[in-house]
Design a protein around this nucleic acid. Sequence first.
DNA 1: CAATATAGCTGGACGCTGTACAGTTCGCCA
DNA 2: TGGCGAACTGTACAGCGTCCAGCTATATTG
Lengths: 183, 183
Amino acid sequence: MGIRNPGQRAGLTRSAVLAAANDLLAERGLAALTMRAVATRLDVAPNALYSHVANKTALLDDVLDDRLALVTEPDVDGDPAEGLHAVMVSTREVLIDRPDLVPHYLARQGARGPHAQRLGEIMVALLGRAGVTGDDAREALRVLIVYTIGFAALGTGGPLAADETGRNFDRGLRWLLAGIIPG
Amino acid sequence: MGIRNPGQRAGLTRSAVLAAANDLLAERGLAALTMRAVATRLDVAPNALYSHVANKTALLDDVLDDRLALVTEPDVDGDPAEGLHAVMVSTREVLIDRPDLVPHYLARQGARGPHAQRLGEIMVALLGRAGVTGDDAREALRVLIVYTIGFAALGTGGPLAADETGRNFDRGLRWLLAGIIPG
DNA sequence: CAATATAGCTGGACGCTGTACAGTTCGCCA
DNA sequence: TGGCGAACTGTACAGCGTCCAGCTATATTG
C-alpha cells in the first residue's frame, strides 16, 4: 500500500494472529477467513503472517485448539459419569458457535493440539474411575468424541431449534454413557 | 487447447460429470477434485461443466447423494432394531472410502438429496415399527445420523486399525439403539 | 427439404486465493 | 559500536471457480 513503512516492526504476535483469525471466523465465517483478511485486520501485509504461522491449515488447527482451552474442566472427584457428561456438553457448547471449524477438524482426522490432548486425558481418567480401562476406554473415548464433534458440526442446522438440539444431544449422550458405564 | 474442434459436441452428460468427479475423488482425494481436473478427465473445457452442473458445491452435493444410493435397504419387515443397525452400518461403509465427502456434508449442515431423504424415511418407518414416533423419532433419527456420519468422517484416522474402528462403531451404535428402543 | 432456434461447447478473461522470493530495516547482544 | 537474525515489505506466480461472448452441430418447425 505504500503507507506502511518497509522493514518496520508492527509488533505482530502469534497469539494476535490467532485472535484475529478467531474473531474473523466468529464474525464472518470460514469463507471470509482468508490470510489476506487476517492480515488486513492486523494492518499488515499478507505474507507477514507466515513469520508466525506455518500455513493456513496450521493456523486453523491452532484456532481450534485455542477454542478447546475454553472447555470447563469437570470435578475429577465427583461422579465419573456426570464428569464425562459435563465435559462433552461443554465441548459441544464451545464448538457450536464456530461451526465452520468442526468440518476442518474432521477433515484433519481429529485434533492433536495440547488442549485436545488434555481433554482426552481427563476423559480417560474419568473412565478409569468408572471402571472402564484399556481397549474399552479407548473405544468409549472415541465414541464420545465422535458423537460430540458430530453434533457440534451439525450445529443447529437440522429441523430442530437450537435448544431442542441441545436436549437432543443430551439425550443421546446419556444413552451412550449408559452403555459405557452400565449399572 | 486447440485440439478439440470448437463448437463440436462432446456428448457430455450430467451423470458423466458426476461419475468423473466421483472417480477423481476416489483416486486422488478432495484436493485433486477441481473443476479443471474433472474437465480434463472428460476431455472438455472447464466451463463446459457448467452446462450440466450449477457449481462445484452442487456437484459435490450430487456426488454425495449418488453415493448414498449404494446403501443397502434393510428388510422392512424384520426386527426394526436390526434393520436400523443394518442401515447405519451400510451407510458408514458406503461413506468411509470417500472420507473427504463427509466434512463437506457436515459443512452443508446435512444432506438433502433424494437418496438421503429416502434413507431418512426408511429409518423413520423402522423407528415407528419399534414404537418410536413423533418427536422421539426425530430425535433418535438425528442421533443415529450424527453418530454414523461422525464415524464416517473420522474414517480410520484414529489410533485404532480399520476393522477395529468398525467394531468400535458397532459397539456405540448398539448402545444408542439400546437407549432408543428399550427392552 | 430449407430455415431457424437452441443448447453445448470453446477461448479468453477476471478476481481471488495461498504462498514463495528477495530485499529492507529494526531490535538485540557481543 | 558492529553485526546478526528476525520481522516485515513489495512483487509475483500458479491455480482456483466462474462469467462472458461467440461459434456450431443438432433439434424443431414451416
